[in-house]
Amino acid sequence: MSDLDLSEQAALSNAWQNWYRFSRNPTAVIGAIIVVVAVLLAVFAPYIVPYPADAGAVVDFQHRHLPPSWEHWFGTDNTGRDNFSRAIYGLRVSLALAGVVLVIAVPVGTVLGILAGYFGGWTEIVIMRLTDIALAIPPLVVALAVAAVLEPTLLNSMLALASLWWTWHARLVYSVTRQVRAQEYIEAAETLGASKLHILFREILPNVISPVAVKTSLDAGFVILIGAALSYLGLGVRPPTPDLGTMVANGANFLPDFWWESMLPATVILVLALGFNLLGDGLRDLFDVEDVR
């Protein structure tokens, strides 16, 4: 048997072990299922939803404010559009927001955190004080300010959130790096003559990945909530683009008689945020066990 086969086997058995432990954790599995289903629904929304046309600006006054039924699972809204179809489309906006914000914020925060944690001295002072300043500003307020000064579009909200979100990851990665850096294997790598780049990204980064993955999953839930809050305040997505936060805001005008128009989209937000949080907790349990092993 060649060396390659063995390495593949080892990788497979490791992945299988991890999957086995993960699958024994019911909350983690529920979280993972919610997230996967939400992503699939969002991606294939046009082929799944019962009334794809209702994603646009459709007006059908004969079917206004219908309660939940077999034809309209989430009822219909003020202009007679199917709320279920619009909620599924709304997942796209929420997930895109979380995805873009975290794709920008997580790598930036991770790299800055590792640099500050490993080099210390002036690098640490500059990066971490900058982080402290940024941490003092609430992301929602900045998003509001950006939306007020520039145009209130989804892209602007994303950039506003991303411009502050890296700080949490920088903080986390910094403290983990400080711990890892004190380990003997980092000193051993230095003794062997490994380059700084190697030590930062090959020795330290793999040890930082698991807490970052946990935090990223938990953060996805928060970003979705903030995105929904922005839309609720009318600073997110422009109508008629379907968005969960906007649906809650519009439906709230018709409380309590037509409760489904706000409560059901709100429930979707809740379940989505919950899914990411359960997944994050499950990942944390998984990685904790791995560290103890």
Partner: peptide, 16 residues
């Protein structure tokens, strides 16, 4: 070169 005291600590747990 040096061989460290505790081999559990001197090898990176995330690397083969």
């Amino acid at each position: 070169q040096m061989v460290f005291q505790n081999p559990g600590a001197s090898l990176n747990p995330r690397r083969t």
